[in-house]
Amino acid sequence: MLSGAGFILSSPGILKLISLLCMIIGGLIFVTAGDCRESQFWAVTYIISTTVSAVLSMVSYTIYALKLIKSPNALKAQYIAEITFAYAAFLLLLIVSTIMMTQCTNKFAIDYVPGPLTIIGAILLAIGGTQLFLYWRSKENIDDIQMNIPRHSQPRNNPHLSRKSILI
């Protein structure tokens, strides 16, 4: 299973870290650049959804990086929770960022950065969660296959028979 340094250096770990940075930078730019006077509801919703997604993503990254979960059943639950969170956060951030970009009309170029940056972070979060889930599923399938391999107790009588092609 991916955990510890293996997770940090893997593509899901790197994508999760880049996604986290995109969400944090997008949220910070939005907060420091000014507020959205046209729609306070979507401005507050954007800040809350970005902050909660970033915090939960950081907690998940820390759990994998520090190898806090050891049992196979808990790891299975963690991987399923990870893919669920990744897609839920992706949909939430995509919707909220798109509505925030359309509702808030600002005058400066920097005001248009947080929405697309958060959407990029959400996409990377979903891709990283999918990679992590697929890695776990492939590892689980390999373990199942290796457990069911029949062992031959008798040596082969003629070693040349195993070298023949099926086309001959």
Rank of each mutant, 00 (worst) to 15 (best):
V113K: 04
G26S: 13
I25G: 05
E82L: 00
M58N: 07
L75V: 01
L93H: 01
A65E: 01
S11Q: 11
N141P: 04
K16N: 05
A5E: 10
K107S: 14
F7P: 00
I110D: 13
L161W: 05
T50R: 02
Q146T: 07
A43Y: 15
E140W: 09
E140F: 06
W42E: 11
Q131C: 08
S57L: 15
G4R: 02
A43P: 02
K70G: 03
N106D: 09
L66S: 08
T98S: 15
L117I: 10
G13I: 00
L94M: 15
I69S: 02
Y87A: 04
T50P: 01
H152Y: 13
I18Q: 07
Y46R: 03
L15H: 02
M147I: 13
M147T: 13
A86C: 04
T98P: 07
L93I: 06
Y112S: 09
S162H: 05
I168M: 08
Y112D: 05
P159F: 11
L9G: 07
N73V: 03
R137M: 14
A89R: 00
I80F: 09
Q146E: 14
C104V: 06
K70F: 06
S71D: 11
L134V: 15
S97Q: 08
I29F: 09
M58P: 02
S60R: 02
A77W: 09
I14K: 10
H160E: 10
S11N: 08
S3K: 03
Q154A: 10
L68G: 00
M100P: 01
G13C: 06
G4Y: 03
Y79D: 02
M58L: 15
A122S: 14
I149Y: 15
S19K: 06
S39N: 15
A89V: 01
V113D: 05
N157H: 08
R37Y: 15
R137F: 10
H152W: 13
I25H: 06
L125Y: 05
D144R: 15
D111R: 06
I95Y: 14
L15Q: 05
L117F: 12
I63W: 00
I95S: 12
S57W: 07
L94A: 11
L75P: 01
L2I: 03
I25N: 07
F85G: 02
I166D: 05
S39M: 12
T51F: 11
L9N: 12
I18R: 11
G6T: 04
C22F: 13
Y79P: 00
G129V: 01
K16W: 06
L15Y: 02
I119F: 13
F108G: 11
I119K: 14
S57I: 07
F7N: 00
A109C: 13
W136M: 05
I99K: 15
T118Y: 05
Y64K: 06
R37P: 12
F30E: 04
L124I: 08
D35T: 15
I145W: 12
N73P: 01
G128E: 08
G121D: 07
I14A: 07
T118Q: 11
D144Y: 14
